[in-house]
Amino acid sequence: MVKYITRRLLGTIPMIVLISIILFTLLQLAPGDPLAGKLDQHADANYIAKLKEDFGLDKPPVEQFFFWAKNFVQGNFGVSFDKKVLVQDLLSERIGKTVFLGIVSLIFTYMIAIPLGILSANKPYSKLDYTLTSASFIGFSMPSFFAGLLLIYLFGFQLGWFPYSGSETEASGYEGLEYLMDRLHHVILPAMTLAIINIAQYNRYVRASVLDAKAQDYTRTARSKGLSESKVLRKHVLRNALIPLVTLFGIDLGLLLSGAIITETIFGFPGVGQLYIQSITTRDYPVVMAITMMTSMAVLIGNLIADILYAFVDPRIKYD
């Protein structure tokens, strides 16, 4: 197992190098100049030249790339072109919030999607199944800005159960547990917005794989042994049916860091997604590079975790 993990980890290095080269090239080719937005009538030629020099933009692209790569390996993500502050400071302010939002939304997703999927599969082609299927299609096709605004209107404005924006109460003076509760209270609506589309999708997967497992020989064998239906479902069907979900879980883990651009913007939730979209509009390449690299690495690691988990859920899989 250790050998397998080491091998896989080493295997990700060329991937990361490749991703960084492609990403850097794409950003170089994209139209737009990071300094273009800075120009107002007071920015004279000297000032622009000085900024270019400070940011290393006066050097050839290959040299810029190696400069960036050298710093990146040492854990230095550079200085934001737009805000002129260290990229790691910008990220560290936000990453915790994004991960928190992601985890809560994943909890919602799994807690709701799995039971719904099983319910559907238990009575396939029944009224309940059709209702859930229709609801899933609605959920799946609902754009997140709409879902977000709907939740804000209903639960934030009309019912007033949850805060309609932000990640914590302003000037609250909360500490300890109270602060944590305040954060949780704020994260529920955006997390739900993110979860809606996932729930719609995941309960389809669960339904399909439970149906599939139910038609297998081992399920028939279990039934003919005289086991109760609930035991068949728990011991024989579910365990096998949830294996495909592990793959999805791996991808989800990776995307935890990337943030949710639209949802974060609508809820004024200061996560990585909000910073990402802002950095793309202003062509703030160091920030875009850092976030994209971080996400790519997280997805690679998430996949590795998924592969390792397979060995636990499926005894047939062994890594040696």
């Binding site: 949850f162 109460t169 609250s172 509760m181 949780l184 209270h185």
Partner: peptide
Amino acid sequence: GLSVFATACASKSSGDG
């Protein structure tokens, strides 16, 4: 439980300021 608690907490504090 946490969600309910959180709701309760936040509504309690709104009178502070």
